[in-house]
Amino acid sequence: MSFKETLSKAREQRGMTQQELSDKLYVTRQAVSRWENGETEPSVDMRKLIANVLDVPVIQLLDIDVSELCQCCGTPFTVPNMPHGTDADGEENIEYCKWCYDGGKFMYSSEEELIEKTAPFLMEATGMSQDEAVSFMGVLVPNLKHWQ
């Protein structure tokens, strides 16, 4: 489900009007309306606030299918030439990328280390600022299989 559909549905399930939601988020009603009709989309940090106000998981508001991602770093396997990781016996492991999992070993010992080392690549690929990339990864990474 798209962000605009998820937002509208979650708001309506809580019996809130656009005005009531906007008051809790300290934005205009028009901002909520534009989000719900797909004209604009809020930042990751605003989505965190929306999730808190509507009591929904933040990942639900990111419109991401985590099954299509490396289950350690979140890089999409749709990236051209994205190599899969390998198990200790050399067999390909389709859940992880080579940069996170190689020869049966994970390259990162904590979510923080992963985010610190990979946020610059996300910034380069998407044009996000450092704060945006770190915030995005902070929401995504805990929802990936390796970190649960």
Rank of each mutant, 00 (worst) to 15 (best):
T40E: 14
M123L: 01
V56L: 05
W147A: 03
R29W: 08
P57T: 07
L49I: 12
K98D: 09
A31T: 14
M16G: 05
Y96V: 03
T17G: 06
R11N: 02
L69P: 04
S135V: 02
T75N: 13
A125I: 00
I50N: 06
I115G: 14
S67L: 01
L61E: 00
I94S: 11
E124A: 15
L140Y: 09
S110W: 05
N37H: 08
R29A: 07
I64H: 12
P57V: 04
K145A: 13
K145E: 15
K48T: 04
C97Q: 12
L114P: 08
C97S: 12
T78W: 10
M123N: 08
L62C: 04
M46F: 04
M82V: 01
P120T: 09
E12Q: 15
P57I: 03
R34P: 00
A119T: 05
L21K: 00
P80C: 04
M107Y: 00
Q13F: 07
A10R: 12
T118W: 10
V139Y: 11
A51W: 03
L21V: 00
E112Q: 13
E5K: 12
K105R: 15
P42Y: 05
D65Q: 03
N37K: 13
M16D: 05
E91L: 10
K48D: 08
E116G: 07
T6A: 10
A133Q: 15
M46T: 09
A10M: 10
I64Y: 08
K4T: 04
T6W: 04
C72W: 11
I64L: 11
E39L: 06
D65G: 04
Q13V: 01
I50L: 07
K145C: 01
S8E: 14
R47Q: 09
A10Y: 05
V66I: 06
Q130C: 05
S135A: 14
F121R: 09
K48I: 00
K105P: 06
L49F: 03
G85K: 11
E124M: 14
Q18K: 10
E39P: 03
G90M: 10
D65S: 03
V53A: 13
D102G: 09
R11D: 00
L61K: 00
F77L: 02
G138P: 13
L7I: 07
D63I: 00
M46V: 02
P142E: 08
D63P: 08
